[in-house]
């Protein structure tokens, strides 16, 4: 099963090459519904409420976000990976948990996430941190 899923992913990746070079696939789901599913199925625990967390989703260039098919295959890829130790790795999302339609909605939501990263010059605290570090002399 696992071999089969990864084989599918590899095949799909071959078709679409890397995301930097590839055209991102179309979005067919409902982003609003996807936001609720993103919350209900605990995606936020690792990816943050808005796509920033232990693993970012916002405009990261992740190959798993190239299109809906690859995204879906990635969600279903760990069906037989059940380590004995507790894991905070990416969980498996089988079809009886997230249907293909639900996956499409989550994909739409993820693709809608903005890249929220201000210019350092516009953020007083960050500017202050950099300037102070450059000026400060070590004192015991």
């Amino acid at each position: 099963m696992r071999k089969h899923v990864f084989g599918t992913i590899v095949l799909l990746m071959g078709l679409y090459a890397t995301p930097a070079a590839a055209q991102l696939g179309p979005v067919n789901g409902d982003a609003e519904a996807g936001a609720q599913l993103y919350y209900d199925h605990g995606c936020y625990a690792c990816h943050g409420f808005s796509g920033y967390g232990r693993k970012d989703l916002n405009n990261t260039g992740s190959p798993w976000l190239t299109n809906e098919e690859i995204f879906r295959a990635f969600l279903r890829a760990r069906a037989d990976v059940a380590p004995l130790l507790p894991s905070t790795d990416m969980p498996n999302y089988p079809a009886n948990s997230l249907s293909d339609a639900m996956v499409r909605d989550i994909y739409a939501y993820v693709r809608s996430m903005p890249d929220n990263r201000p210019e350092t010059a516009d953020v007083p605290a960050l500017r202050n941190i950099l300037e102070a570090a450059e000026q400060r002399q070590y004192k015991p």
Partner: peptide, 21 residues
Amino acid sequence: HQEFMFIQYLAGVRGRGTDRG
């Protein structure tokens, strides 16, 4: 949150629903 992620992972690999983590 760490425990939330643990349960989420286990629910996923057991395939019995991932919305009750």
